[in-house]
């Protein structure tokens, strides 16, 4: 799966988990622009695990690991590689 496909699929997951987000900017701050918090990020990661069939370890649940949705996409890409 290439990065564009990952982004498209991730955008769908974000839309499901965070329906209040109308358009995903992969470079924008997830906390300041989208109000993502530690709990909502974990909900999103659980959905990502299911959609991409990947698993995140417990340290990878930290909000500080992801400034942007692009960072999350990069982590997914690493796991799929």
């Amino acid at each position: 799966m290439d990065r564009t496909q990952i982004n498209t699929k991730l955008e769908e997951v974000i839309g499901d988990v965070m329906p209040e987000i109308e358009k995903v900017d992969f470079a924008a701050s997830i906390t300041q622009e989208y109000g993502v918090n530690s709990v909502s990020l974990i909900r999103l990661i659980l959905a990502v695990e299911s959609k991409f069939d990947v698993s995140f370890n417990d340290y990878e649940l930290a909000l500080s690991s992801y400034d942007t949705f692009g960072d999350l996409a990069a982590t997914v890409a690493e796991k799929l590689a």
């Binding site: 530690s38 974990i42 417990d58």
Partner: peptide, 29 residues
């Protein structure tokens, strides 16, 4: 700091998924 955060986040995860078996990892962190 990292282990305390992992413990807290794992508990959030367990509270969403009911993966009670993951509690042993919580104790480890």
């Amino acid at each position: 700091v990292k282990n305390m955060l992992a413990a807290r986040n794992l508990l959030v995860r367990i509270s969403i998924t009911d993966e009670i078996e993951a509690a042993s990892r919580f104790k480890t962190y």
